[in-house]
Computed example of a mutant assay.
Amino acid sequence: MRKVTLMDVYTHPVAQKYLNRSGKAHAIACAYHAFKLAVQAGINPDLAVKAALLHDIGHYEWYTAGGEWDYETYRRNDIHAIKGAERAHKLLIRLGEEPKAAKDIALAILLHTDSYLPEGDLHKDTLQQIVKKADEMDEEPGGHHHYRQIDESLAMKKITELDQKVQQALQPMKRSV
């Protein structure tokens, strides 16, 4: 039994604040990609969809003096995965998520991008690889994926649908005799 649903996470005011900043349409698309990848890999889809939904909640808005989005400054200086991992962990613990699950989700968020890491290979577990891949599957040049819009009623419908898919995937298979 899941203690915290995706809807619990999505509707929390902290999540809403940062999902609005980083792009709800992108976050929801990534959660769907993560669900499919998690099921294919045989890992817990609940952790994958939560990590993918929250993967960009650490974004800071980088603008030029003229008010234009400065994508290059963002790419050179952003550490959103660090802040996002911290925010997600705190949010999940407040919501009552199991501490180990909250930590695994936060680590997947921390490692979903290597833009701030030093050169070299870092071993990533399957959940961490899935969140990175889900993000890459929805990327658009110049960071435009963060600016796609989604109607709130459609977003709620998609979150509800994804919660149902996760619940079904977590149910043990019933044998017919």
Rank of each mutant, 00 (worst) to 15 (best):
I93P: 00
E72Y: 14
G143E: 07
I130C: 04
A102I: 01
H112W: 09
K132N: 01
H112T: 01
H123S: 02
E136C: 11
R76K: 15
T126C: 07
S153E: 13
Y147R: 13
P99N: 07
M137D: 09
L127F: 09
I79F: 10
I150R: 00
K124H: 09
H123L: 08
Q128D: 00
G120K: 08
I150F: 06
H80V: 02
D114N: 14
K132F: 03
D125Q: 10
A85N: 01
E119I: 08
H112D: 08
K158I: 00
G142Y: 12
P118G: 03
A85Q: 06
R94G: 06
I109R: 02
Q129V: 06
A102M: 08
A85V: 03
A102L: 11
L127A: 08
T113A: 10
T113M: 10
I130H: 02
E98M: 10
H80S: 03
H146Y: 05
I105Q: 05
A155H: 02
A81T: 02
L91K: 05
A155Y: 04
L107F: 14
E136W: 11
K158P: 03
G142V: 09
T160N: 08
E139I: 10
K124E: 03
D121I: 01
E119M: 13
G96F: 14
I82N: 07
H144N: 09
E152H: 09
P141N: 06
I93E: 03
K83N: 04
I82L: 12
D135E: 08
G120S: 09
M137N: 11
H146L: 11
E140L: 15
E86Y: 15
L95V: 02
E98A: 11
L91A: 04
G142K: 13
R75W: 04
E119C: 07
D135K: 11
G84E: 06
M156E: 14
V166C: 05
T73P: 00
Y147F: 13
Y74C: 06
L92T: 00
R75E: 07
V166A: 07
S115D: 13
E119H: 13
D138M: 10
A101M: 06
A134E: 04
E86A: 14
D135I: 07
Y74P: 00
A101S: 13
D151F: 05
T126G: 04
Y116W: 14
E136A: 15
I82D: 01
D114Y: 13
A102F: 07
Q129L: 12
D125T: 11
A108N: 01
A134N: 04
D135R: 09
H123F: 11
A106F: 03
E97Y: 10
P99T: 10
D104G: 02
A88Y: 04
L117K: 13
K100F: 09
E119K: 15
Q168M: 14
K103G: 06
D78V: 12
H112Q: 12
E97Q: 14
P141V: 02
K132Y: 05
